[in-house]
Structures are given as C-alpha cells and as structure tokens.
Design a protein around this nucleic acid. Structure first.
Lengths: 191, 191
DNA sequence: CATTATTTGGACCGAGCAGTCAAAAAAGAA
DNA sequence: TTCTTTTTTGACTGCTCGGTCCAAATAATG
C-alpha cells in the first residue's frame, strides 16, 4: 500500500472555511489558505481540486451549520424563545469577534450573482431555513403560542430576511444600539 | 496655462462605481476600472490617487444616493406608502439587473471589518437612514397615520435592518416569492 | 508663434497570483 | 529488504496585479 495523509481533511477544510469567512473569496490567496490549513500546495490540489472547489466545500460546510439551528428550533418549546436566542447568538457572536462578517451573506452578495452554483447553495439554504422556521411557527400556531390567524409561511420568510438584516447591521457596526431594536421589533411580529 | 482634462471626472467616477458595485473591491482590477472609465492609467492616478482612494470616492458617491431616499420620505404624505415604494423599488431593481448585488452591503460585509474608514462611512449612512425614517415616522405618529403608542426610533432602526435583509435576500435569489412576504410583514409592523 | 503647465499613453517594475511538475520521502505489501 | 503507490516538498511557470516613470501630445497664455 501507499503512504497515508499526514493531515486531517476535515480539520484543514474547517480552517480554510474560517479564512474565507474572514476575508472573502477574492481577497484570500492560496498562501493564506495553506498557512492556515497547515498543508502544502500540492496536498491542497490533490485533496480539494483547486481554490474554487475548496471554497465550495468550505461554503457547504458553513451552510451545514444550519443543522444546529434546525435542531434548536425543533426542540424548542417556545418559538419566541428560539428566535430570541437566535438573535442573541448573532449579537454575541459579532460582539466577540468583530472582524468576521458573515460567510453566507458575503458569499451571497459577492459571488452568487456571478456563480450559479453558489447562488443555488445560498438559495437552497434560505429555503431550508425558511422551512425550519415555518414548521416551528406552525407548531406554535397549533399550540396557541401565536395567534391562529398568523400566516406562518409569511412570517417564516420574514424571519429569514430579518436574520440577514440583523447580520448585515451587526457587521457594519457591532456596537450599534440599533441592533437590539431590530431584534425586538422583529420578534414583535409574533404578537 | 496648461492642457485641460479630456474626460469628465464625475462621469468616470460614476462608471468606476458601477464596476465596484458589480464586482466588489477585491475582484476588481485596475484594467477593469480603466476600461469602464475610458481613461488611461496615469489619468486615474493623477485624478483619484490610487485604487483604494477611488473606491472610497465611489462608495461615497453610492452613499450619496441616500439623498434621494431622504427627499422621498420627507415629501411623502404617507409613511406607509414611502416604505412600500422603497421596498418595491428594491424588488424592481433586482429584477431588472440580477447580477448587480448591493454596493453598500457588499462593502459593509467585505471591507468594513478590515477598514475603519469604510466602516465609518457605512455606519454613518445607516444612522442617517435611520434618522430619515425616524423623522417620517414621528410625523406619521403626529398625524395619526400610525398609532401614538408606537416607538418611532425602534421602528426606524428596524426598517434599516429590514431594508438590508430584503436586499440580501433579493441578491441571493431575485425571483424568490419570499421577497414579497418579507416586505409585507415588515410593513405590517406599522399596524 | 513660443512658452509653460498639465494630461496622456505606453513601457516598465517588482511582487504576488493560481496552478503544475518532478523528485524525494514514506508507508505498507510481498 | 525491496517494490509499489501515494504524499509531500519546493522549485518553477506564465500571467496579472497595483503602481511608477517618462516622453509625447496638447491647451491656454504671453
């Protein structure tokens, strides 16, 4: 048999993801990536293909984090609390690491208009998020947590937008007092 | 005296703005800019300084467009209609030119975390927009168009976020039926 | 027309880019 | 140990980048 890889593929991908996350696609060079991943040039090409393919895998990995959100919403006893926790998490995240931005939004705005695969990944993710919200809202409607007259689909879509709006506002100015108002008024649509 | 410039500075800047708008800062090369601006390399350096300075001017020019929004909100007899028109304009814009994205959001997410001047420009613009909305909402409260119990400041901040959320969603998928719901539920916060 | 200040266009620079290649190193099988 | 197969390393390619330099072109003044 042959020599075994010295590095962990998932670990390297994870590190590449964080570099793209911080810098975006165009502003990230191969040396940037290799340094962070701790591997050599050829190992990267053998393992991932090229820079663009590596980016797509990194984006897919980032998007996979939606799974945690889904679990959170499916287990939550209160949809209000689930949304509030989600907003809080975003505020905390941006407060803790002000120089990160949002991988998904960055990709959506910078790459999606020029790259169909990226556009599809982002659009799919939005729909998936919408469905997670929708299911939770329907349950809340059934349980009486929110009014039966509410349009769960419309609200779910609205919250996908609200989430992105909050992320952009938080990236632009993580310390702005406006962020809490955005979250608060968004949550009030459930009343 | 000396030779006069052969090109129109504002016109060239406007074209540069559209290139940055479409492609973002990092993905735009000098040749890209020069081709669009229709001027030579040296003319660009003499007139604008360097690529980064040109970008800052382009961004300032883009942000200056907020003036139109301000006028619209100050003249509007109905704040509801003003917000609705604003949302409609975004939907139309993205529908007409699907490969554009949003300059402000792109800059906010890609550059603001690493460039204080950009961060300040974006944050200032958000506050300005917030104030425009706030004044219009206070007038609406006074005139009885919206309930006196409403928190105009909070709503103004919320609409800044909603605007950005809608823009991101529209960039990710300009044909998504979710966009109308985002706009509709956002407007319903005024009821 | 001659002078002078400025713009212009193109050649040029070193650096850094994404991606390729080939030789060396290594790990397991025979 | 030797052979086979793979990974690793680092040199190398051709290209493009942002930015500079300089000579030719040009417009207003005297």
């Amino acid at each position: 048999m042959a020599r075994t890889k010295e590095f962990d593929r998932e670990r390297a991908l994870d590190r590449a993801m964080h570099v793209f996350w911080r810098q975006g696609y165009a502003a990230t060079s191969l040396p940037d990536l290799l340094r962070a991943m701790g591997i050599g040039r050829q190992s990267m090409y053998d393992t991932f293909g090229d820079k663009h393919a590596l980016f797509l895998e990194a984006l897919a990995r980032y998007i996979g984090r939606t799974d945690a959100t889904r679990a959170c919403f499916e287990q939550a006893s209160s949809v209000r609390r689930a949304f509030r926790d989600m907003f809080e998490a975003i505020l905390d995240e941006h407060d803790a690491d002000k120089r990160r931005g949002c991988f998904g939004i960055h990709s959506a705005v910078a790459l999606a208009p020029h790259d169909k695969r990226v556009a599809k990944m982002i659009a799919d993710r939005q729909r998936e998020l919408e469905d997670v919200f929708h299911r939770a809202l329907e349950r809340a409607r059934a349980s009486g947590e929110i009014a039966a007259a509410k349009n769960a689909r419309g609200l779910a879509r609205f919250f996908v937008g609200a989430l992105q709006g909050l992320r952009v506002a938080a990236t632009a100015d993580p310390s702005s007092p406006a962020l809490r108002d955005i979250a608060r008024v968004s949550l009030a649509t459930l009343d």
